[in-house]
Amino acid sequence: MSPKSQFSGMKDLPKTHLLAPGSAMCAGCGGLEAVREIYDVLGGKTVFVNAAGCMTLMSVYPYTPFRGSWLYTAMASAPAGAQGIRDALDILKSHDRIGEDEDLDVVVLTGDGSAYGMGLSSTSGAIDRDLDFLYVIYDNEGYGNTGQQTSAATPHGARTATATSGIGVAGRKKDLFSILAAHEPAYVATVIGAEPLDLARKVERAKTMSGPRFLIALSPCPTGWGFDPQLSVEIGKLAVKSGAWPLKEYVDGRLVHNRVPKPLVPVEEYLKRQGRFRHLFEPRKDEFTLMDIQAQIDAYWAGVMDHDGA
């Protein structure tokens, strides 16, 4: 991390908040927590371009929590909306029809449903065009706004509204981080609201860069994952400590892990607090699936050790 960060410790985190309360997100929403923390650092000189998802209900006529601007587009094409706004602002600036002070940072905000699936082509295109924008993905590992159906971000073994029996989802969570990084954009980072210092530093860093920049925020979802809202942060921390959600960055063409959890907390500690994994523990423990999930995580971190030489 840059030594010049204004966030050297927890005490430097914002003590007042920019995003206004009053939006219709669920109590304990891990996505809102991350977005609010991100907004605190980004500030109101922004225009958020949104795709269909939970956060579409951030702004419901006639109320908005944003200090800056917002445009809802559709599920598939928020990055293209960002393209239109960025290009138009650049055109206006180049003709001196607006000043620098009227310019805005363009931020795409979508869930995993759009980012991992329907909007991936639009995202890929925006990176191809080297669009100067920040893309914030709140990843609650399912189509949350419609009741938590399986998305490409749903992890192995989770039950969803469309995978209600057996081990749940048999597939594996899509590695969006690597897909994005393979495009060689300016910046890709994973974050989580439960690690606000790491998050603030990454937002701060992304803000100073230009080009396509991505923040993928794992977003513990009390409603979709099945846990009491008060556990939202605890579960988020466990996602990091268990190694299930690696905190990492792709920057200057290099992959960096910001934190290597040592030792890894057994992933069971993370899973057993969530209703979507309850079938792995009750009525009897599904040792095979639990070992499989643990093995995947262990293999990932073994690869990190090899790669980083840690």
């Binding site: 909306g81 706004i85 639009s122 295109g125 191809d128």
Partner: peptide, 16 residues
């Protein structure tokens, strides 16, 4: 990369 994105960008540009 598609007409869907093209019309989105067109609308967003006009909205700006």
């Amino acid at each position: 990369e598609s007409e869907h994105s093209m019309i989105t960008a067109a609308g967003a540009g006009a909205a700006t």
